[in-house]
Each structure stands twice: as C-alpha cells, then as structure tokens.
C-alpha cells in the first residue's frame, strides 16, 4: 500500500561528471499529486538532480548516475529502460520559456503526434491550453507563431505542451525565474490546479515561492568537496517553521546565501 502514494523514489541516487560527484546519495520519496519543491543555494545541484529525474543529463558528456531512481518500482536507469519512454512519462518545463519556432497549435500538436496520439488533435490542443489557463488568450491566434506571445504566455504554452502528452510527473526548473511577478503568480496558481492530476517537482531559488506553493520541500546544500546533497526533506511547513537542521534554518531565514 505504501508505494502507491509515491510517484518517484530515489535510493542513494548520486550524479557524477566524470570523477566529480555533483550530487551525493539522495533518498527521497515524492508523493503523488503533490508539489515538491527543491531549494538551496545556487550551485548546489538542484537542477542537476531535477534533470536526473527524466534523464536529461544523458546529453551531458561524461555524466552518469549511481543508485536507483524508481518510478512504479522500475529503476529508470535500468538497462532495459528507454530514456525516450522515461521523458514521455516525466515531462519538464524549463527555466527560460523555450517554445518551438512553430505555431501555437503546432507547439502542442507536435509532441502528441510523435508520441502516437490517435484522438482529435483540435480537442487535445484546446484541452491542454485550457488546462494551462492560456486558451482564452490564444484561441483566436492558434496559427500564429509562438514567439509572438509574452514570456509568461510562452511559459504557460510550454506547460500546455507538456500536459498534452499526459505525463505522470511534471518537472519544473525555476519556471518563473525569467518572468515578471504577475506572470509568476499565474504560474503558481496554475500549479495548484495541475496538482489535481499530476505530481509536480519544482526547483526554485525563491523561498517565498516554495513556502507558498509547495507541499513538501527538499533542502539541498553543498559540502566541502562541492558535492550537493539533500540535507533535509519534509513537509514544507516543517521546513520553514521548525527545521531540524541548523543550515536549513539559516537558509530559510535568510542568514545564508
């Protein structure tokens, strides 16, 4: 029964670049349909860890992973696992909005098409845009270039194209850091809406954002060998109100970093 509540589990997950260990021994259980935030000072390996979750680090030469990353009891780094399938199940939204240089419609339809979507494309596009709270703004200009949208709209379009392929988990790598406060707020509202259907893991350097928006928080820190590790992982309330680690307390109260 216990496993069913967890979308993803890591067992001693470490990430290495050649002989350098960037992230050390992470043990996390990420609960389903909740928002889990990863916080920590810059350079502590937050993004590296997040990218390990859907094997985006495969593209970095010399990068490899030890330990286990379990989704539905399967180790995503197992020999029989196909990274393309992994990324189809675990979508990602990036720091800077990166819509494809195509029309708004095609931005969403493309991922669906390559993944063998069989239903009515128009409906899928509309549903995804509605789910990303973008439909009303773009319904009259679906054939226009995605580059014509504002930064905040582009980021919601990226979220829309991610949910169009129906992943289990959505990873968000500082999704609002390039956006203005109002767009940021809309993204945060959207996340609350999305967690009804998806598990969300978000990396953020914005403490208020983590406190406001997440259910669980993982605190990362680098050691003297510059290897990052999760020093504390708990309810967001606990992390921000009664952290058990002194370093977490220093960080969340702003005495550090």
């Amino acid at each position: 029964m216990e496993n069913n509540n967890y979308a993803i589990e890591t067992n001693d997950l470490s990430i290495h670049y050649g002989r350098f260990t960037a992230v050390k021994s992470v043990n996390m259980k990420v609960e389903r349909q909740k928002i889990t935030a990863i916080i920590g000072p810059s350079g502590c390996g937050k993004s590296t860890l997040l990218r390990a979750f859907n094997r985006m680090n495969d593209f970095v030469p010399g990068c490899f992973v030890t330990g286990e990353l379990l989704l539905d009891k399967q180790n995503l780094y197992g020999k029989t696992i196909d990274p393309v399938e992994v990324r189809r199940k675990i979508g990602m939204v990036f720091q800077k909005p990166n819509p494809f240089p195509k029309s708004i419609y095609e931005n969403i339809a493309w991922g669906a098409r390559i993944n063998g979507f069989k239903g009515k494309m128009d409906d899928l596009v509309e549903q995804s845009l509605r789910a990303a709270a973008l439909w009303d703004e773009v319904k009259d200009k679906l054939q226009e270039s995605a580059y014509a949208l504002s930064g905040g709209q582009q980021q919601r379009l990226c979220i829309a194209r991610t949910i169009a392929i129906q992943p289990e988990i959505i990873l968000m790598d500082e999704p609002a850091s390039a956006l203005d406060p109002i767009s940021t707020l809309r993204i945060e509202e959207l996340m609350q809406e999305l967690k009804k259907n998806y598990t969300i893991i978000i990396v953020t350097h914005n403490m208020q954002q983590a406190a406001r928006a997440s259910d669980y928080t993982a605190m990362m820190m680098i050691d003297d060998k510059r290897a990052g590790s999760v020093i504390e992982f708990d309810d967001t309330k606990t992390i921000f109100m009664r952290p058990s680690d002194k370093r977490t307390e220093d960080y969340v109260t702003g005495r550090f970093g």
Partner: peptide, 25 residues
C-alpha cells in the same frame, strides 16, 4: 540548446528533434 531539450523532454527521439525542431529552426 534549450529547443533541443524542450523536444527531448517531450519524449522525442534524437532524429525527431533534429529533423522536426532543429532543422526548421
């Protein structure tokens, strides 16, 4: 690179990314 990553993150293969995203761009 962000465009390629965006495509990979949607479950695209290297070929699909190269031919359908990078090439048109």
């Amino acid at each position: 690179r962000s465009l390629r990553e965006g495509a990979y993150a949607m479950g695209a293969t290297k070929l699909e990314t190269s031919l359908q995203i990078v090439l048109p761009a």
